[in-house]
Design a protein around this nucleic acid. Sequence first.
DNA 1: TAGAAGCAGATTTTT
DNA 2: TCTGCTTCTA
Length: 685
Amino acid sequence: MDTILASLNNAQREAATHIDGALLILAGAGSGKTKTITTRLAYLIQEVGIPPSSTLTLTFTNKAANEMRTRALALLQTPLTVPPLLCTFHRFGLLFLKFYIHHLGRAPTFNLLDTDDQKRVVKKLSPTLLAHYTPAQILGFISSCKNQIISPKQAIQEANSQKYKDLSLAYEAYDNFLQANNMLDFDDLLLLSYHILCANEQVAREVSMQYNYIMVDEYQDTNYLQIELLRKLCSTHNNLCVVGDDDQSIYSWRGADVNYILNFSAMFAKAHIIKLQENYRSKEPILRAANALIAHNHNRLGKDLISTQGDGEQVELISSENEVQEADTIATKIQELISQGESPQEIAILFRLNALSRSIEEGLNRARIPYRLIGATRFYERAEVKNALAYFRLILDYDDNFSLERIINIPRRGIGKVTQDKILATATHQNLSVHKALTQGKLDNILSISQKEALTELFATLDILRECLDKSALDFLEMFDEKIDLLSTTKNTQDDIDRRANIEELYGYFRDYILQNPHLGLDDFLNDLSLSSGLDVDIENSVCCMSVHSSKGLEFSYVFIVGLEEGFFPLVRDESDIQEERRLAYVAFTRAKNKLFLSNVHSRFYKGRREELGISRFVREAGILPNKQSAKKTNDNNAHTFAKGDVIKHKIFGMGIILAIQDDKLTINFGGNVRSIMQEFVQKV
DNA sequence: TAGAAGCAGATTTTT
DNA sequence: TCTGCTTCTA
């Protein structure tokens, strides 16, 4: 019986064996959170005898869900016929809606929109609003309404200024459009599920009783809608176990609110709280710095990480003149580590802003260090991939105007924007899809003969593909690739090669999907895709560069945090946001196992300007003092010698950065103008 | 219709 | 500085 629990410490064991009622596991960074929650799941199933189908474990990312599934199943001695439901909130919503959306009078064949699609809808519906707001701002408003369970009508009623009135009307138009086209956005997956549960007591009871034991990971990131949904799901049993860390709440801008974890016991009756404070990840100096830093925050549940890994190397501060020198210094340090036998994938470079990655990448390139940039442009957001997917959707449903619009002129069919608008207006006016309007001859006086031919030809090709799809999904892929020229370019630039590779990768995913799920089809594939970020990259033998946000949940032996300057990290000066920035820094610090490097520069080039910057308050708050050695280094190589990356001043051209040195001639970048200048005419700054 | 030129905007990000 | 979008022009 104890085999499952054998490797747990006392607090972890208490958490894993706590069965009924509400339980908050307050798990500090590196305290074995995943281990505890997966063990608890295995324990419930194997030792307590709870049927796997009565459990529900919710996470925020697919990655977390996959990791937990693997680890929980590994703990079980006997393989399960029915695996426990372990997925993201959104996937749960998707599954739920497939079964229950008919309660809202909607068909389960809905299409899921991603951010890009959402932007297209907003642009289309509220063109005048774009003068004042970006699509992202409008969508941000809509999303925050949905996550606070505010309907368009309510939003309009409660709008207390023209601004909110406008945004609320956009929200209403957006929602109507989605309903009319049976589309859902990500928020709807949760919001509509919630509405169904509220409106149908019978369904609510049924579902709540089905999932008798519910667990939630990263509870500090839940928002109001998620909490309310959880309350519905727990309404018949109150068996809710959540794991989280108030100090790692970094998604308030997405509606998450630390208060939900702070007030857990007020919300769920008789809640039991267990703290996991023993850290199994980081050496002592790293934890000292992290603890000292986070101690500057208020409103904490209060916990300190206790080291189990013993003493290690001190946190090192790297101070550089500018971002070029910063990148080179870090690259050099990384080379040293690698030459000492450290593996590159155990090294990470973290930044607060993705914009800072550029200089770092350049430095790594110069040093020929292999690196991997995580989270830049997501795979499924790439235009060529989205075009292929739009074709797929269109093949399943010719009346899908939204997808047709996207690819109507890809490859070029001589149907430009003007014609597109006319086609759409005519079709909408007659209450027809473009395809129906075309086949009924309603577009004849709009289209030129060649345009009509091109469109007819497009649908004829789709007919062939459709037929092919019915027979075999794999043959379909081949035919699709042959018939549809997604790139239509003869240039063989690197970009084209990349695009081609992306399309191949998409084909690969689809092939795998069909092979692994022979009973599922293209439509299932499309909905599943929308929920997955496609970023389950195996971190090969390369250094990882990523934003602090995307580093959450990961760990590395060596971590470099760059851009520790006031104005960059912390990024905002508003005192209310400072606490979240500090938590963000705390997350970054606690990623490190062996050694943590903090890096700051005296000046940085950003948004076309060079800015003088002071060192981040977080460095001081973490108890790290400017290191004499690294400060001295930058002073030593002045006088007569210049180094690549040095900032210099020229009487006429002003400030610049040295790009290259050849004998006594310097190649200097003066704010975009590159010139060659003799050494004696410039001064080091 | 399609390429060129001009212009604003530029956190963090999962699903 | 760089990107993505709108407007302009052939």
